[in-house]
Write a protein that binds this DNA or RNA. Structure first.
Lengths: 231, 231
DNA sequence: GGACTCATGCTTACAGCGTAAGCACAACCT
DNA sequence: AGGTTGTGCTTACGCTGTAAGCATGAGTCC
């Protein structure tokens, strides 16, 4: 049996390390995260962290898993057989989770999600969507496409340089540099803010994707069988 | 006038520095790029690079611009007034450009594109799409959504850890760990490879997005969401 | 009790990083 | 010629991730 020997001196643990790292990133941005500073925040030397995390890369992977798990946690089990509304919820829940920790987003975009929880979640979703009538391959396609789009969109939204706010789409800052004769449309965009609303743009694109895939599966089966999928 | 004074000793230039950096990243991955190694590859000390680039961040920005410019260069001017096919071409051209330099992709995803060329290109596209009948806001939406999706999809495609290949969707590597009773669908995915073809998935999703937006402009010349007013 | 095991956290040390500051030189202009 | 300027090198600083080894104290077993 696994006998519990030796007890923490400073109450450190993998979970606490991850929590602290997330705090640090939320507060000061991803580039400001170093093992020494992280240790300092926990009242501990940098090397002590290596008892709970094999290296910094693994720590970052852990952060990705953690953020993804919150996206799933707010989600629950897919209920009913209207997969289109599950997916919409999933997309928005994922975006919320990503926006809650913008500093981690580049990591999420860049490394695989390996957590067992995520695997279990994928399995359950695939099962549910098949049960709702989608072919396996198509089910995987929709989920992946929604996830990839959400990540791409949120990356653009959170904006560029990690650890730097810039709530405005940064086009504004150089609107002064733009020659009105050469860039009339860009200037009109800035002036009217047409097409600059991330919320509605995201919702609209997700709807388009979902109804598009729904249309695919309808036609592929016999017309009239699956019926209404609209919103 | 700009008088050319002082001539390079080792024939260095901003362009050559960017070229070398791109080579280095293509060959050994993004994390392996350091100013010292880059200098060494150019037969020069690290500090010499700072005569041509203000700092490493700016160098990375330059790489992003460069890759984006190749995407535009393979594209040409939008011709005719079928904006749907321009956009499809744009999406695939962007994906090719990104796939050509996978190591740069995390940078593209993470920092703004500031190059004047990109601005000019945006302006021209907006003008052309308006001329083809799209409201300004919608035109910007479609282009942005396509770009964001392409970046998100390609990020997932190129895979995770930068500087590491892994052509297989890395699910394979742990297929042995999966309990067939618990993960029947995931295992079927791995076995049949259903939904694992990046090329066709990307093409399909892009088509769905474009025809979705095309449908919007057809149907809704006035019942659009909040901002959709004609011109 | 005493001995042993072992997880924990600290200390020290090293190689590598980005880059600030200042110097030496070569090419050009006047 | 003298001055100016662009170029590249040298040195140095503070920071990074982490390898290696040690001290401590809690827990188990005799």
């Amino acid at each position: 049996m696994a006998v519990r020997r030796g007890v923490p001196k400073a109450g450190l643990s993998r979970e606490k390390v991850l929590d602290a790292a997330l705090d640090q990133i939320d507060a000061h941005g991803l580039p400001a995260l170093s093992m020494r500073k992280l240790g300092a925040q926990l009242g501990v030397e940098a090397m002590s962290l290596y008892r709970h995390v094999p290296n910094k890369e693994a720590l970052l992977d852990g952060l990705v898993d953690r953020v993804m798990e919150t996206a799933f946690a707010n989600l629950g089990e897919p209920a009913g057989d209207d997969w289109t509304s599950w997916l919409r919820t999933f997309a928005h829940s994922l975006r919320s989770a990503l926006l809650a920790h913008p500093g981690v987003l580049p990591l999420v975009a860049t490394r695989p999600v390996n957590s067992p929880d995520a695997l279990r979640m994928s399995e359950r979703w695939l099962a549910a969507m098949r049960a709702a009538g989608l072919p396996l391959g198509r089910a995987l396609d929709v989920v992946n496409v929604i996830a990839m789009f959400t990540i791409g969109h949120t990356l653009a939204e959170v904006g560029q340089t990690p650890g730097h706010e810039g709530t405005e789409p940064d086009l504004d800052q150089r609107s002064g540099d733009l020659d009105p004769a050469e860039f009339p449309n860009l200037l009109e965009v800035i002036a009217t803010r047409a097409g600059l609303d991330f919320d509605s743009r995201f919702a609209q694109a997700v709807d388009i994707l979902i109804t598009g895939y729904a249309g695919l599966t309808e036609v592929a089966l016999d017309p009239g069988q699956q019926g209404a999928e609209g919103r």
